[in-house]
Design a protein around this nucleic acid. Structure first.
Lengths: 232, 232
DNA sequence: ATGTGTGAATCGGTTCACAGCC
DNA sequence: GGCTGTGAACCGATTCACACAT
C-alpha cells in the first residue's frame, strides 16, 4: 500500500479545502467593500457577519492562506485583500468565451459583473448563421468553429456553456480540445471532462426544484389543494 | 417561542439529508429522459452514470424516499418518477416572481426552462417607471410595490432576486413580508432572511473566481509573468 | 483585555462491503 | 447471479475551546 505520491501535478504544498476555496470570493467581496470604506482593520467576527458565515470558519479559512492576522487586533484589510487576490489568481485577467448566444448567453455577456471583475468576455459562440457576425452586448458572436483560434489569440482559459442541453457535451469536448482549462456549465445536462479540467455547474431549474422541496415540506401537509397560507 | 426539540415544524418523520435533496432533481432529469425512451427499469449503476454520480450514492439517496427498488432488478422508472416528483413537490406549479428587470432578470424570464418545469413566472418587478407596464419575454413588468397583491393573487411562493447588490436585502425583506416562502438570490450580496424562509444563492462572479483559483494553481507556478502559453 | 490560530471533538456525508431478496 | 438496501468505516468540513500573541 503506497501513497500515489502527491497525486496530480506539483501544486504548491498547501492543501486549501474545496469548501474554503468556495468561500474565499465571499470574503474578497466583503474586503473590497471595507476597503472602499477606508476601514483598515477587521476582526473575524465582523468579517463573518459581512460574509454571512461564522467567525470560527473565517479564522480557519484565512489561516489556510497564512498567518495574516494580528492577535488582539484582527486582519489588515489591504494586506488580506492582496494576499487573497493573489491566491485566487485575480491579479491577472482570465479571458472567457460563452457558448450559446441565446437568451442566457446574451444576458451573461451583458452582465457587467464579469469584465469588471477580471473576466473579459472575448466572444459569444453559436452555430446559427443568423447570429454569427453580429455584436451582442458589445461582444462579437463567432462561429463555434472559431473556438480554437479564439482560444489561441486571446489566451482563453474559461468557457461558459449556455447552450441547450443537447449541445452541452459536444461544446465541452470542443472547449477542452481547444485548450480551455475551466468550464462553467449552465446547460441542464451532465457533462464529462477529463480530470485535469475544472468544471462547475449552475442549473437554474435544479435550484428551483430544491426550493420546491422545502416549500413542499412546509406547506405540503397543510394544503392539499395548493392554496396560499392562511393568514396567521 | 415554542420550539419543540425536533426543530422547525412537524415534517414527515424522514430526514432527507440536504445533500440528497440537492441531487434529487438530477435523478429526476435522468428519469424523465428514460421515460421518453420507453425504458421501464433502471439499475442504480446506470442511473448513476446518467446523473454523473456513483451507484452507492444513488442507492442511498433513493432509499431515503422509500424502498422503491426491486433487488436483482432495479427501479421501475415510472414509479420512481412519480414518487420523486411527489417528494420534490412537483405535482403542482409554484408561481415565481423575478425582481429586477435588467439583463439577467429578463433572461431568466425568457428562459423557457422555468415555466415548462412547473415554475410559471407571473411577473418581473422593477422600480424604474420606464420599465413598469411593459411586457418583456411575455411577462408583465410590475412595480415592486405590487408585490403583495401579486403574491396574494397568484399564490406566489418563490421569489428570484436579480437586482443590483445594493437592492437585494431590501427586496428580500419585501418578499418575505409579502409572504414569499423561498428565495433564489442572484445578486452578489449576502441577504439575511428569517429561519423559516428557504434561501439559495447563485453568484456568477463567485463561480468564475473559484475556477480562477484552480486555474491559477495549475498554470500559476509555470507562468510568473502572467502570460499564456508561449505559442505565437 | 482582545482576537487570532489551531488542535481536538463533532457532525454530515460518502464509500465500502455484504446480507437479503428477486 | 444480480442488484437493492443499509449498517459500518471513513473522510472532509465545521465547531469548540483555549493557548498564545499583542
Amino acid at each position: 500500500m503506497h501513497e500515489p505520491l502527491t497525486l496530480g501535478f506539483v501544486d504548491e504544498l498547501r492543501p486549501i479545502p474545496e469548501a474554503t476555496v468556495a468561500r474565499l470570493p465571499l470574503y474578497l467581496r466583503s474586503l473590497l467593500e471595507l476597503a472602499t470604506d477606508r476601514t483598515s482593520t477587521i476582526s473575524s467576527e465582523r468579517l463573518a457577519a459581512m460574509a454571512g458565515v461564522n467567525a470560527a470558519k473565517v479564522r480557519k479559512d484565512l489561516s489556510y492562506l497564512g498567518s495574516y492576522g494580528t492577535r488582539g487586533v484582527g486582519y489588515d484589510v489591504e494586506h488580506l485583500l492582496f494576499e487573497m487576490s493573489r491566491e485566487l489568481g485575480l491579479t491577472r485577467d482570465w479571458s472567457v468565451v460563452i457558448a450559446g448566444a441565446g437568451n442566457l448567453g446574451q444576458a451573461l455577456a451583458g452582465y457587467g459583473g464579469f469584465g469588471e471583475r477580471g473576466f473579459p468576455v472575448v466572444a459569444l459562440l453559436d452555430t446559427d448563421p443568423a447570429k454569427v457576425g453580429q455584436t451582442l452586448a458589445d461582444v462579437p458572436v463567432c462561429h463555434l468553429d472559431e473556438l480554437p483560434s479564439l482560444v489561441e489569440a486571446h489566451h482563453v482559459t474559461i468557457g461558459i456553456i449556455a447552450t441547450p442541453a443537447t449541445a452541452a457535451q459536444e461544446v465541452a469536448d470542443r472547449m477542452v480540445e481547444a485548450g480551455v482549462g475551466s468550464i462553467l456549465n449552465f446547460a441542464p445536462a451532465v457533462v464529462n471532462v477529463p480530470d485535469e479540467i475544472s468544471l462547475r455547474k449552475v442549473d437554474l431549474a435544479v435550484e428551483l426544484q430544491i426550493l420546491s422541496f422545502y416549500q413542499q415540506q412546509r406547506t405540503g401537509s397543510l394544503l392539499p389543494d395548493g392554496d396560499a397560507l392562511p393568514a396567521s
